[in-house]
Design a protein around this nucleic acid. Structure first.
Length: 834
RNA sequence: GCCGAAGUGGCGGAAUAGGCAGACGCGCACGACUCAAAAUCGUGUUCCCAACGGGAAUGAGGGUUCGAUUCCCUCCUUCGGCACCA
């Protein structure tokens, strides 16, 4: 050993074999020491805020994290080389249930566990060699962070956007907490996090008035977002245009408001239906019907949402004994209750038009209620004996002065029948144009410990009031007891609840619920701007320079959760005067998912998890990065293929071999040199375009292709020529965003170029060099490729024609005939029609 | 039921203004190097017809076009979202 070392010292020999481990460690340390990726405001340069969704500190970096973050990093690096001042921060979404559940099991405090996990994941994230600016790291469970989460809650409260309400809410019996509507998924209405079906509970909870922004959230005109996400959000909000109409009860004691998308069918409303939970039921129900109604209500309450919501379920209902008056024709119509009417949509009461609504039709048939046709297909004279509800276009009949008015299948004012009736209703004061949404306010209370406490106190005299700013943050107590029942330790804590009313200084009780962690992640992109700033959630100077986020990358699963919340949050803050612009994230791109080799979702229980650490250890980060970018279309994702990575490893090694090859005297012909230069610039063009479009897989393909060409040029003696040197430089610059370590090593150590390659500008395409001068034109005869003709790229149509007709093969297929038509697609192909 | 995405070799995928289908890679086969293996390098690799050569083929069927993976219509399959929403 000693001898070898001595030998090395005396006669330094460069180790020529590719050793990713030492290269990667070396450069990561140097970049770090030099603060190469520190981003500071620089007014002279255009800014680019690249953001990738922050991870939950689960404790281990998953291959999925790599799949999300590596291409995002590579794109950020590309933008930096394009001359942008790029901000690419990283942090942790550190509140949440897993840490608390683990604490219940083993007693380790979530704080302790979370920071340990962060420590570990930080290390793993660094092994990626990404350009994260770690000085901007933000951790949402840090009191210096959640102080501002709480502060924002108070701002929303002060602006009338936070309120407390008793209502039936979704409860996950496994997570022991309520959930927002967005967090309940699927046919069986399960918890988004743990998959357990939720149940309904009546609880007092805090909500954000997200519905105030429903219309604005439907506008995407400023956004470069995938259609898919815009569609998901649009469907989620589900705007529905129609009218609200006032019905009076027969006794005249009550007014019942209903929402309908079909006010043009009002004359066909032959009964009304209330949801079983409707508050007016008790007063409308007659004594004779009381027991039947009560029984039905009890049965409906007993059923789960899933049972009630089953589409194919036979309709059931009970007559209340009460009557309403149809305001358009004075008809006395019975009021029923049925569970197909939901209290949570519209007003919980509907006008039933059996002739033109399938559900009402089925109900009327079953209970033998009158069916009156009010829309008839155009041109048809006779009344219909309806076998089904008619929902098509037609003309209004049995509708007094509106008879003959045309009705199409459009919703809202686009439908002449609806427009006419709405105007008339409004004039009479019995109805008006109205819009309904399926979208609900955001329920943010969580009955858990490991979250940001809701900064509100309750006083017997003064009700609910926010904690004064100077008392923020409301910190989580550390001396808590973990109950296996899952009850919130905040509720059980002996003294934590005790507070002072900010109005009267009398005794008050603290809110023991914490906030939905989606609240924390609704503004993390702002905390990154100035994570240590203590005068406000963010420094305005930083905000004015960096915001909005230019490129946001992350998973599609957040389409109606995080991405909707964060848009709402930005708009709410904008109206409160804290943020500018209408949208927080201008461009969005979603990556797909990496599946296990068995084509299933990766999970510990399936045993199909791919650990990036092992791959990095075996191949080096550059190879893992390259493979992740190469093996699938980024937005699609694909199952992992352990063999496939060998291809990327081979590519990296082949680059190393070629670029560390000692120079030899240049012997290449002019043609070889010209062809090399052409391929280099053609590749640069492709790679540039692909980076712009997030087509990461074809970037690596193009680089592999060019490398193959370079090997051929090498064989032909191109080494040492100016073209070769240019090829090497451009190659490494194109490779730098993909494989930052090896390209730095080859750039500085083997090409002897100035450190750092990551501070170089992206090369410019030489269009003239990229142009082909001779091209091979395929010749089609009657649609089939029969020959290929080599010809100058700038040849005239006549020259092309002549060359094609001169071909023996072409003549053979023409069999002496003249082509009827010759189509020349310039630079692409020639097509002969015989 | 409604809305959306996707369907291309054994596999991942490419074809980015309608113009050579299968780039690039995996895998496989053969060859070189080697005592041998690994690594590396080279050649081949959509299918069918013995074949020179030809034919078929981008989920299926139709249409537009000189020409369709690409545009239009109908349908099938897979995945995702919503769903008694008035």
């Amino acid at each position: 050993m000693a001898e070898t070392k001595k030998e090395k010292e005396e006669k330094p020999v460069k180790d020529m074999s590719y050793n990713p481990k030492s290269i990667e460690q070396k450069w990561q340390a140097k970049w770090d020491a030099d603060k190469l990726y520190r981003s500071v405001i620089d007014e002279r340069r255009p800014k680019h805020y690249a953001l990738t969704m922050l991870p939950y500190p689960s404790g281990d970096l998953h291959i999925g994290h790599w799949y999300a973050k590596t291409p995002s990093d590579s794109r950020a690096r590309y933008m930096r080389m394009k001359g942008y001042n790029v901000l690419f921060p990283m942090g942790f979404d550190a509140f949440g249930l897993p840490a608390e559940n683990a604490a219940i099991k083993d007693g380790i405090h979530p704080m302790k566990r979370t920071y340990q996990n962060i420590e570990r994941m930080r290390k793993q994230l660094r092994s990626m060699g990404a350009m994260f600016d770690w000085e901007r790291e933000a951790i949402s469970c840090d009191p210096e962070y959640y102080k501002w989460t709480q502060w924002f809650f108070i701002q929303l409260y002060k602006n009338g956007l936070a309120y407390r309400k008793m209502s039936p809410v979704d409860w996950c019996p496994n997570c022991n907490t309520t959930l927002a509507r967005e967090q309940v998924w699927g046919d069986d209405r399960h918890c988004e996090r743990c998959g357990t079906p939720v149940i309904k509970k009546d609880l007092n909870q805090w909500f954000f008035k997200a519905t105030k922004y429903a219309d604005e959230l439907l506008r995407f005109d400023e956004l470069d977002w995938p259609e898919r996400v815009k569609t998901l959000q649009t469907n989620w909000i589900d705007r529905s245009e129609g009218a609200s109409v006032l019905f009076k009860t027969e006794t005249g004691n009550h007014t019942i408001e209903v929402f309908t998308t079909r006010p043009d069918t009002l004359w066909g409303a032959t009964f009304m239906v209330f949801a079983p939970e409707h508050p007016l039921l008790d007063e409308i129900t007659t004594p004779e019907q009381k027991s039947a109604v009560e029984a039905y209500k009890a049965e409906a309450a007993r059923q789960t949402d899933i049972q009630r919501g089953a589409v194919d379920k036979e309709k059931t209902g009970v007559f209340t004994g009460g009557y309403a008056i149809n305001p358009v024709n004075g008809q006395r119509i019975p009021i029923w209750i049925a569970d197909y009417v939901l209290m949570s949509y519209g007003t919980g009461a509907i006008m039933a038009v059996p002739a033109h609504d399938e559900r009402d039709f089925a109900f009327a048939k079953k209970y033998d209620l009158p069916i009156v046709e009010v829309i008839r297909p155009e041109g048809q004279e006779e009344a219909n004996e309806l076998e089904n509800a008619y929902i098509g276009a037609g003309v209004m009949v049995n509708s007094d002065q509106f008879n003959g008015t045309k009705v199409n299948t459009e919703k809202g004012r686009k439908n002449p029948g609806i427009a006419a009736v709405i105007d008339w209703l409004a004039g009479k004061g019995i109805g008006k144009e109205s819009v309904n949404y399926r979208y609900r306010d955001w329920l943010i209370s969580r009955q858990r410990y490991w979250g940001a406490p809701i900064p509100m106190v309750h006083c017997e005299t003064h009700g609910w009031n926010p904690i004064p700013d100077e008392q923020l943050p409301v910190e989580l107590p550390e001396d808590v007891e973990w109950r296996p029942t899952g009850e919130s330790p905040l509720k059980l804590h002996p003294t934590w609840k005790d507070a002072t009313c900010p109005i009267c200084n009398g005794p008050a009780t603290r809110e023991t619920d914490t906030m939905d962690t989606f609240m924390c992640s609704s503004w993390y992109h702002l905390r990154y701007l100035s994570p240590k700033y203590d005068k406000a959630p963010f420094d305005d100077a930083e905000y004015n320079y960096w915001m909005p986020v230019d490129t946001y990358t992350g998973g599609i699963e957040h389409a109606t959760m995080h991405l909707l919340y964060t848009r709402f949050f930005h708009k709410a803050l904008r109206d409160a005067g804290f943020t500018k612009g209408n949208e927080p994230m201008m461009q969005l791109r979603n990556q797909g998912m990496v599946l296990g080799e068995d084509n299933e979702k990766m999970s510990k229980s399936r045993g199909n998890v791919i650990a990036p650490d092992i791959l990095v250890d075996k191949y080096g980060a550059d190879t893992v990065r390259a493979y992740i970018m190469f093996f699938a279309r980024w937005e699609m994702g694909a199952p992992w293929d352990s063999n496939g990575i060998e291809g990327s490893a081979r590519w990296i090694r082949r680059v190393w071999t070629l670029f560390t090859d000692p120079t030899s005297p240049p012997t290449a012909s002019d043609e070889v040199k010209k062809n090399l230069r052409r391929k280099v610039h053609q590749t640069l063009k492709r790679v540039t375009r692909d980076f712009e479009n997030f087509d990461f897989n074809t970037i690596v393909s193009a680089l592999m292709e060019l490398l193959n060409e370079m090997y051929k040029a090498h064989e032909a003696g191109a080494v040492g020529t100016d073209e070769w040197k240019e090829a090497q430089e451009i190659y490494l610059k194109m490779m730098a965003p993909v494989a930052p370590h090896i390209s730095e090593e080859l750039w500085t150590e083997h090409l002897g170029k100035p450190y750092s390659i990551h501070q170089q500008l992206w090369p410019t395409v030489d269009e003239a060099a990229a142009k082909d001068d001779v091209i091979e034109l395929p010749v089609q005869i009657n649609g089939k490729v029969r020959d290929r003709v080599k010809i100058a790229a700038d040849a005239s149509e006549d020259d092309i024609k002549a060359a094609v007709m001169a071909s023996e093969t072409v003549q053979k297929y023409l069999e002496g005939k003249e082509p009827r038509k010759i189509i020349i697609a310039k630079g692409k192909l020639v097509s002969l029609v015989v």
